[in-house]
Simulated assay, not measured.
Amino acid sequence: MAEEKKSRLFALKPIIERWPAVSKPEGHVNFRTKILWTLLCLILYYILTNITIYGLQKQYIDLFANYRFIMAGASGSIMHLGIGPIVTASIILQLFTGAKIIKLDLTKKEDKAIYQGSQKILVIVMIIVEAIPQIFGYLQPSDAFVASVGGWASTIIVIQLVIGALIVFFMDELISKWGIGSGISLFIAAGVSQAIFTGLFNWLPVGGGVLSLSNPPAGCIPGTFYIATNANLGELVGGYYQMMFIGNSSFQNAIVPL
């Protein structure tokens, strides 16, 4: 019987064997250790979502700002890309393997190791592919930042996006080996929870600055309370009832949409 031809991905084996990775635990990991690593990664995730990209102009374009939490991202932060590159790389490899374009038998230990290693390399590629287009018309550097670093401004923004996505990638691997469940699922749940919490309880003004009826608290509960207690009957009938329940461009976390 002729020897089965191996996939060309085996050419990446020397790279995969030297690729940095989170070491597997030797033996059983107790529940307390799993909880500890999971909580540490979760806290780090929340911290990173609140670190704004250095040098980014205040007014930037993000077409998916309201949906970025679904991919565990945070608009304008170093977690801007979220788990997007990880998910994209996984889907591409699954499609190619399922369609037999990539000939790997995942029931074999060696083939599975090549598959997982190739996925890690593809994640890095997708991080770069998704980070670079962000600086073309979307995440633009501020004028002051451009004046201080010159032509490197956009490159520095891309580097920050890459670093943020790499941290997510390694935290996902860390949780999968040392924590509880899947890091991807955890970060999605964390992103959705954060969006719901801030959408409900954020007391900061929508547009920054001083609170006013045209610039109420961004959260649904404090915003509704502020409008209801500060608008007179004529103002409520004149449009603020609609603003509380349906919302508008300046107050999106209204009761019905939320």
Rank of each mutant, 00 (worst) to 15 (best):
T97D: 04
I135T: 14
K100M: 14
R8A: 13
V256K: 07
G183R: 08
G209T: 04
M171I: 08
L204Y: 05
E3R: 14
V206Y: 12
G183I: 09
L39K: 05
F187T: 09
L166I: 07
Y46L: 15
D111K: 07
I175V: 15
E235W: 06
Y46P: 00
V210Y: 04
K5S: 05
N230I: 01
V237E: 05
G199I: 11
G137K: 04
L106M: 03
S75L: 04
I61Y: 12
A190F: 11
V22W: 09
I70R: 03
Y60R: 08
L122M: 08
Q252H: 07
I83C: 08
P133Q: 07
L174M: 14
T38E: 00
Q252I: 15
I101K: 10
K5R: 10
V256R: 14
P257T: 02
Y67C: 11
M126T: 15
G223I: 08
L106N: 10
I132F: 06
T229P: 05
Q119V: 05
G219D: 01
E173C: 10
Q160H: 01
K58I: 06
S249W: 05
G223C: 10
N50V: 10
L42S: 06
I61F: 13
V123W: 02
A2V: 08
P222Y: 04
A99M: 15
I184F: 12
T198Y: 03
Q119D: 06
S118N: 10
E17S: 11
V210P: 00
Q57S: 08
V158N: 02
H80M: 07
N248A: 13
G55Y: 00
I47Q: 05
P217S: 02
L204G: 04
Y67H: 13
G199H: 06
A228G: 12
T88I: 15
K5W: 00
F69I: 01
K34Y: 07
A231Y: 04
Y138N: 04
G27Q: 09
T52E: 14
G199R: 11
I132R: 00
I167R: 02
A228P: 03
L200I: 13
A74N: 00
I163E: 07
V146Q: 00
P205T: 08
N248S: 15
A189F: 09
I184V: 15
L213D: 09
S214I: 05
H28C: 05
I227M: 12
L122E: 07
K108G: 01
P205K: 11
I246Q: 12
S154R: 14
A165N: 01
V123C: 05
Y241D: 06
F10M: 10
A74C: 03
L200Y: 13
C41T: 11
N30I: 12
G164S: 05
K6L: 14
S75I: 00
Q116C: 10
V162I: 13
T49C: 09
W203S: 09
Y46N: 08
F136W: 03
I132M: 03
L40H: 01
T38W: 00
L211D: 09
F245D: 15
S193V: 00
T33M: 12
T52L: 10
D143P: 05
